[in-house]
Design a protein around this nucleic acid. Sequence first.
DNA 1: CTGAAAGCGCTTACAG
DNA 2: CTGAAAGCGCTTACAG
Lengths: 331, 331
Amino acid sequence: MSLERAVRCTRQDVARRAEVSPAVVSYVINGGPRPVAAATRARVERAIAELGYRPNKTASALARGRSQQVGLVVVDTTNPFYAELAAAIDHELFLRGMTLITVSAVHRPSDAQATALESLAEHDVRAAILAADPNPADVAYARAKGLPLVVLNEMAPSAGISSAIVDYRSATIEAVRHLAGHGRRRIGFVGNFVRDLRYPAWREALDGAGLTPGPAVNCAWTIDAGFEAGRRLAADHRGEVDALFVASDALAMGCIAGLREAGLGVPDDIAIVSFDGTRVAPYVGPGLTTMAQPIDRIAADAVELVLDADAEPGTPLAYTAQMVVRGSCGC
Amino acid sequence: MSLERAVRCTRQDVARRAEVSPAVVSYVINGGPRPVAAATRARVERAIAELGYRPNKTASALARGRSQQVGLVVVDTTNPFYAELAAAIDHELFLRGMTLITVSAVHRPSDAQATALESLAEHDVRAAILAADPNPADVAYARAKGLPLVVLNEMAPSAGISSAIVDYRSATIEAVRHLAGHGRRRIGFVGNFVRDLRYPAWREALDGAGLTPGPAVNCAWTIDAGFEAGRRLAADHRGEVDALFVASDALAMGCIAGLREAGLGVPDDIAIVSFDGTRVAPYVGPGLTTMAQPIDRIAADAVELVLDADAEPGTPLAYTAQMVVRGSCGC
DNA sequence: CTGAAAGCGCTTACAG
DNA sequence: CTGAAAGCGCTTACAG
């Protein structure tokens, strides 16, 4: 448990044992930039194995000017969607020998001096993925520093920034139509009104179906907020709503509990289609019918995009959500 | 988006602007190890502010021999308990100006060459927290390298390793007694039989209450496994079980869904007390009655312990779980 | 194909 | 109180 500098096995040790220069050890490890004779390489590899040598990433990062780490900025790792997204990104990076360093956007606002990206930049991250409302300062910072950045599931803040996003509009329309197809006529909305295409899309779908909008609740993205929304709907709009489009699985989880507390059942009294397709969805209420995001594909593409040196930020990558039908919609 | 070495503002730039040597800049930033005259300090601070200078953590880590990062090894960040624990640890570290780097224990086994801790050590992490079954190789490695390590909620693998753990035994006994107090007589178990004190404690509590053990299902720690357990209990033991002690909130979430699919209601047919006290517990089924772990305190203590240079691994820190009563127990 | 050497941006004894 | 200099463990042009 001592904090003295640990005795570590360095490249020097390997070099000595293999009777080569330290440079050659690097050449072998990195497969370049200079060629190495097969016999020499074998000696080096043996020395590495015998010593259990593992190159120090800090030193490597300093020499290279960038690390093997990719930064991820998330709003709330506790939300199942973000937890699964982060896990998927972590796995993609792992496959490439890189590691993920996650910073929560939550306790950042209080830290006036450091935006999330700046704090990642201090670590020489090679790239950053933003799964949170893009702070303009962050975006400007990334551009100024030449830090590859991709924004996930948020409106692309400005030209010149890569982004990947699910087609919220068409997914929402499909969800609302599905509820209407079940004969529901008072279809409400639970989610966030601000800068989220799902809210206008919900209205658009109702217009298209010739239905008057049911009650809508504007709320934060937490389970607790969903619960409050459910309770409020039951209290203020009982009888005026027979279905809900709920903008996330987490919200739906809270909402169903809030409705139930008020004596309203899902799907009988109120049918629900939610959004995300997380792994908890099958176990929420009667099973959530949900518009599933292709989380693994988004993660893979984001990693690929952000690691590709030549990627020029172009049109946002677009994904289609897939409806997964379970009990909550009344099917 | 270019990958050229970004032009960055270094300590040199600050030194030039403040007309001091680079060393003095370090003295100011680190508050030592040499004193700096007030006037000089002021000049340096102004230069730092004007340039927006932020010290490079990679270089600092290399020079110091350790970084400002603490590593966390977790089984499954997707499990709400671990997600909340990781978030709490992250927050504690943030308060100390440090960052968290999480590695998943899940995709490690396939990587024969690198245990989770070794991969963290490559990053010069200052310390590591293990919220996963401690791999003996990892533990030996930490000891050999002098890497401060604390193991959370697992049996302390051996002397010389710090650990913090909830008192599983007494919490389980309290949970089982609570169910018995509701008149339940066939109290089953869902969880893991191996190396988990909750399983023997469940039996012990039943013995103490003069009850025959109900059916027990040995399963993994996932929601899916909980679902399967619920389904199996309903299929194989219907009528032989009127209550369950379920070893985690996530398991309970799956289990309740599995029981419901088979037509069994909670708490009427089967009362449940689970474990963890996560933020989803209020919204699972009729609300989970759960033995809540003091997640924030565990996180704070773990961080403190692992960062304290003088901490000698002693008796494991012990915590008491607190029963939070909701609907699932039939109260 | 191999190696001596400069450099990445810091920390910190050591000498003034 | 301040600074010149060595060193952390790597990468990589450059010269052989």
